[in-house]
Write a protein that binds this DNA or RNA. Structure first.
Length: 470
RNA sequence: GCUCCCUUCGUCUAGUGGUUAGGACGCUGGCCUCUCACGCCGGUAACAGGGGUUCGAGUCCCCUAGGGAGUACCA
């Protein structure tokens, strides 16, 4: 059997991490088995579906590299087909028209609740003749007895009594088909072999299987993946920060880091933490997916992101870093080679946004010294080392790291100081704060002119400070 | 309320009747060191509770508790 999986979001918002993980699992499963991955847009809710959401979802999938082999298919373009199926069901007596009023339905629900029973439609219109000309919905005639067994790829065997299920609406009064009908028809028509989706659909599965049976069709295999909770264990929502996949790009995450994080959330392969895309495809297995919901942990994502930043080619990092520099009002063309800057910060930044912030000093002068750093390092004792450094640097022709390192060393030796006593004040002078890449690299990136200018500024600062102290 | 699902360190997880319950993130002690970071070595911390089954239960069964989903003319 050819494996065919699908991702079927409803376009009522952006692509969030939960959806992205479901899509990833589906995609991996198809890729692993040499199958096809289909994208279907479930936009039958005309009220809430928007074109912007479709674009946002497509954009998110593209960024993550979850390319689809077929689609996107839009359900709104398949209404004729749904109606054809509904008519067939109707003519076989497997579905019927219902004109029960909302009031009656509400009363029914209320009464059932009062009796401590599960609210369900009572089949009132099953044997009534409702004219096609009057306003009506169409309901699927669900079997009254027996059990529906779902052999879930993740949950194992789950069974439901048909008595618990009622005659669900498959076509609304306005003539539009509803979800449970459209998924069934689509999964069937698109020959989906494995339905991998969120576990909020587990309860819908028996209804869908019943419709499938009515259509004389073989149900696909189902795998219901648990949901993702926020850092605090509560349901993932906007207040947890970035839930939109695209927000992670904005926040400076690498797609491979997010993917790696997501694949390990609810799935594992022994003790392995790092997975390349190829490894994921090779090792992923749907029955290795956990049954329990898991909490999103930003710290671990950060760790993975740093891992990939460290590991990746500096040129690519620079390429991805560039727009974040732009966000800070910096044009990387006006300054040191961005690749070199990125390389110097690869082991220091957890995100590209952090990298941009810590790299800014290479392109623009800082406004003020960081207070703590200045207080500690720009003191009277730093004056001489800074003056000596200024002198030596201004005389230096060969502005390369090796030579720069030599200069710092020579000055330290000449003053009989440990390197730190020279490098730290120098660093604060040149960077404005106490942390940066190696002092030689730092000097190199800032450039001669700016270095001298900033050292002067530091010397002024020391002078002022001494004057203030009296 | 009813139906269905879930429950190992704070978090992600390994574990498929016999383990000193392992790894990772985080936190933390140390080493390295011109700072920060990286890296390396060490530490902290878990089987929700109660009954069974068994020579032996994190692993099997039942109950309780706690979470979650569904219960729509949403998907």
């Amino acid at each position: 059997m050819t494996v065919r999986t699908r991702f079927a979001p409803s376009p009522t918002g952006y692509l969030h991490v939960g959806g992205a993980r479901t899509a990833l699992f589906s995609w991996l499963y198809a890729r692993k088995h040499g199958g096809k991955f289909v994208l279907r847009i479930e936009d039958t809710d005309l009220e809430r579906s928007t074109a912007e959401s479709v674009n946002a979802i497509l954009e998110g999938m593209t960024w993550l590299g979850l390319e689809y082999d077929e689609g996107p298919f839009y359900q709104t373009k398949r209404f004729d087909r749904y109606h054809e199926v509904i008519e067939a069901l109707l003519s076989k007596g497997l579905a019927y028209r219902c004109n029960c009023s909302r009031e009656r339905l509400d009363d029914l629900r209320e009464a059932a609740m009062k009796r401590k029973e599960k609210p369900r439609y009572d089949g009132h219109c099953r044997n009534h003749d409702v004219s096609p000309d009057e306003p009506h919905v169409i309901r699927f005639r669900n079997p009254d007895t027996g059990v529906v067994v779902v052999d879930d790829l993740i949950r194992g065997r789950v069974s439901f009594n048909n008595e618990e299920l009622d005659d669900l609406i498959i076509r609304r009064t306005d003539g539009s088909p509803t979800y449970n009908l459209t998924v069934v028809v689509d999964d069937l028509d698109m020959q989906i072999s494995h339905v991998i989706r969120g576990d909020d659909h587990l309860n819908n599965t028996p209804r869908q299987i019943n419709i499938l049976k009515a259509l004389n069709a073989e149900p696909p295999k189902y795998g219901h993946v648990p949901m993702i909770l926020g850092d605090d264990g509560a349901r993932l929502s906007k207040r947890h920060g970035a839930v939109s996949v695209m927000q992670y790009r904005e926040d400076g995450y690498l797609p491979e880091a997010l993917l790696n994080y997501l694949v390990r959330l609810g799935w594992s392969h022994g003790d392995q933490e790092i997975f390349s895309i190829d490894e994921m495809i090779e090792l992923f297995d749907i029955d290795g997916v956990n049954k329990a919901a898991s909490s999103f942990n930003t710290d671990k994502l950060l760790w993975l992101n740093q891992h990939y930043i460290k590991q990746d080619d500096a040129k690519r990092i620079a390429h991805l870093l560039s727009p974040h520099m732009g966000d800070l009002g910096i044009d990387p063309a006006e300054g040191p080679d961005l690749t070199k800057v990125a390389e110097a910060h690869q082991e220091r930044a957890r995100t590209l946004v952090e990298m941009a912030e810590m790299s800014a000093f290479c392109y623009q002068d800082y406004d003020e010294f960081e207070e703590k750093a200045a207080k500690k390092h720009l003191r009277g004792v730093a004056r001489e080392p800074l003056e000596r450094m200024r002198e030596a640097l201004s005389a230096l022709e060969d502005w390369q790291e090796e030579a720069l390192h030599g200069v710092v060393e020579q000055v330290s030796e000449a003053l009989e100081l440990k390197m730190g006593k020279v490098a730290q004040p120098l660093r604060v002078a040149v960077v404005g704060r106490a942390a940066s890449p190696g002092i030689d690299t730092t000097l190199y990136l800032v450039g001669k002119e700016a270095c001298l200018r900033r050292i002067d500024k530091a010397l002024d600062y020391i002078t002022q400070r001494e004057a203030a102290a009296g």
